[in-house]
């Protein structure tokens, strides 16, 4: 193994640099606000990730929630109705109005960072633009 010590040293040094890069320049996005931060705690305390995903991480019983607040045909009120009433599969966690608001603020915050979900985002923006034009 002695002859490989330089290989090991190079790999570990690269890993350190790569970690530093990942923690700093490799990420971007807005900072979380207070309401969304509370929502994040609720999301974790109720273990929502067991059934739902954020950025592909999580369970499969329910839909991915990364873009739920912005997706065409869904949105904040759509999410609120599920959280408030539950479904056959999803329990009603009996959250207060404020807690529900914070949870939605968190989902909205996550969605606002999801630039890779641009396909549906651009479709939604286009739809909204067209309906605004028609209204006028």
């Amino acid at each position: 193994m002695n002859q490989y010590r330089w290989v090991l040293a190079v790999i570990l040094l690269s890993a350190l640099l790569f970690s530093f890069y990942t923690y700093t320049a490799g990420t971007r996005g807005a900072a979380i606000n207070r309401e969304a931060a509370i929502g994040k705690i609720i999301f974790q305390n109720k273990n929502c990730i067991a059934c739902h995903q954020l950025y592909g991480l999580g369970g499969f019983m329910g839909p991915d929630l990364t873009y739920v607040c912005f997706e065409p045909g869904k949105g904040k009120e759509y999410a609120r109705s599920f959280i408030t009433n539950g479904t056959e599969k999803m329990p009603d966690f009996i959250l207060s109005k404020e807690e529900t608001g914070c949870l939605i603020a968190y989902l909205e915050y996550v969605g606002s960072t999801a630039s890779t979900y641009n396909t549906s985002a651009s479709l939604w923006e286009e739809e909204r633009f067209l309906s605004n034009v028609q209204d006028k």
Partner: peptide
């Protein structure tokens, strides 16, 4: 924890 993208990446 205060940055969704950094958080999920880490």
């Amino acid at each position: 924890g205060g940055n969704a993208v950094r958080d999920i990446t880490v």
